[in-house]
Amino acid sequence: MSTMRTVRVEGERLYDISIGPGLLADPVRISHVLRGRHALIVSDSNVAPLYADRVEQTLHAARAGMQVARFVMPAGEQEKTLSRFCQCLDALATLGATRDATVIALGGGVIGDLAGFAAACWMRGIDVIQMPTTLLAMVDSSVGGKTGVDLAAGKNLVGAFHAPRAVIADTTVLRTLPPRELCAGLAEVVKYGAVFGADFLGWLESHASALAAGDDFALTEAIARSCLYKAEVVSRDPYEHGERALLNFGHTFGHAIEAEQGYAGAGSQALNHGEAVAVGMVLAARLSSALGRASAADAQRLQVLLQRLGLPTALPAGLDPQALLARMRLDKKAEAGGLRFILWDHAGLASVVRGVPDELVLDVLRAA
């Protein structure tokens, strides 16, 4: 990866997504977005040993007299809890973080969500700089300002919209990413092609082998294109009142799978977030076909692409369709009038569909 790319997110709050190699060690870039002299690095037990020292050195180089502390929590979706959130707030209190302090979210989606939520709540809102270390976080969760934690009842049920001051995506960190995590991020990349760009979906099909192999050029291009799609949508719909909901393609099914499996993806047989979304997108495409909105051939095309990228496309064994349906009813995307799904009319064009009959959803789940 030899070229640095910048994507501007407009709207109520302007910020840049910087994509390129070596950015975690670039004090000039970070100095432009630091306002105060307190910084809390929030990371997990997998990422902190690899990159926290580097980021702390960069912060000190960016501004003399920086007071830097760390909050390092165990890795895994199961740790994205109110308890860990409170511990993060305690770390800010111990640091003596002022209103111009900055939270540095160094990690994957779990860290970005929890650290961003802590930043949103500390003194009613301080800056957060997202430094995503997974492909999934680079193309999805670090962009757009969605933050939150999980409850036993469901994923991301407690949270806030809190836009970052900047997103700094150092692409060199992807070289240390386990293959399973790289593949999980590709699911979210595919989502952008599925709902916004048939041309991008075709590009992904042409470069599937390179992406699955971790090719630097292909990944950089995929990240930049994905961020551009999300930036455009977030700029127009920052609080998900309309078009931004399309970014949830596959997520109603996927979140239900994650919740029913207990968020146990890391290091287990259960699906992680990207894998659950991959299955969810296939189920959503099949539901689109069952409703007569899209052809079965489109669903098959999506399934083949996801499989080429090393992702699962079938519902894990042992999951009860009725239990999954109950999870969907509690999902934050549900409405009083019934279930709401993001479905597609064909590859590259999706829409919000309300009032989908429960029995049709169950038929799709049973068939999977």
Rank of each mutant, 00 (worst) to 15 (best):
P238M: 00
E221C: 09
A276H: 06
I223C: 03
R175D: 14
E188F: 02
A264R: 15
D113A: 08
A218E: 03
V233W: 00
E56A: 10
A224L: 02
S45H: 08
G355H: 10
E359M: 12
F341G: 06
L360I: 12
L82Y: 13
T3A: 13
D100W: 09
A69L: 07
C86R: 15
V68S: 00
D90T: 15
G11L: 01
A294N: 09
Y51K: 03
E181A: 13
V68W: 00
E12A: 13
G76R: 02
E275I: 04
K332P: 11
A334M: 08
V42P: 09
G11W: 02
D331F: 04
A266G: 08
F85K: 09
T134E: 04
R340I: 07
P49I: 00
L283W: 01
P312E: 01
R293C: 12
L23Q: 04
L324Y: 02
A290I: 04
D298R: 01
F249W: 06
V279G: 05
V128N: 06
D150G: 08
T220A: 15
G185M: 01
K333V: 02
V103T: 05
K191Y: 04
L309Y: 04
D331G: 10
R301H: 12
R54G: 10
P74T: 04
D90E: 15
